[in-house]
Amino acid sequence: MQKTALAPYARLPRAHHGRHVLTSTVDAFGTAHWLLADRAPRPGRDLRPFDALVVSVHDGGDAEVTALSAVRTRWPHLDRLPDGGFVVASARARRADERHQVQVFDRLGRETRSFTVGDAVEHLLVDATGDLWVGHFDENPDGIRRWSAAGELRWASDDAPGAGWIMDCYALNVSGSTAWACPYTDFPLLEIAPGRPMKVRSNTVRGAKAVAVHEGWVAFVGGYGEEQDRIVYGGLTETSVEVGGTGLLTAPDGAPLGRRRVVGRGSRVYVQTEPFTDWGVFDLSG
Rank of each mutant, 00 (worst) to 15 (best):
K3W: 08
T4V: 15
A10W: 06
P13A: 04
H17Y: 14
R19F: 06
R19P: 00
L22G: 00
L22R: 00
T23S: 10
T23W: 14
H33S: 15
F50I: 09
A52V: 15
V54E: 12
V54Q: 13
V55Y: 09
V57T: 12
D59A: 14
V65K: 13
V71S: 08
R94T: 06
E98I: 01
F105K: 00
L108W: 05
T112K: 10
F115D: 01
L124M: 07
L124R: 04
V126M: 13
D127V: 02
A128L: 15
T129Q: 12
G135I: 03
G135H: 00
P141L: 07
R145D: 11
W147Y: 08
L153Q: 03
W155S: 03
A156K: 05
D158V: 14
D159E: 15
P161M: 09
G162Q: 12
A163C: 03
G164P: 13
D168K: 02
Y170E: 14
S175A: 14
P183K: 05
P183I: 10
T185E: 14
D186E: 14
P197W: 07
K199V: 15
S202N: 06
N203D: 13
K209C: 12
G223H: 03
G223I: 00
E226P: 09
D229L: 02
G234Y: 03
A251I: 04
A251L: 14
D253Y: 10
G254N: 11
R259T: 14
V263N: 10
R265A: 03
Q272K: 14
E274L: 05
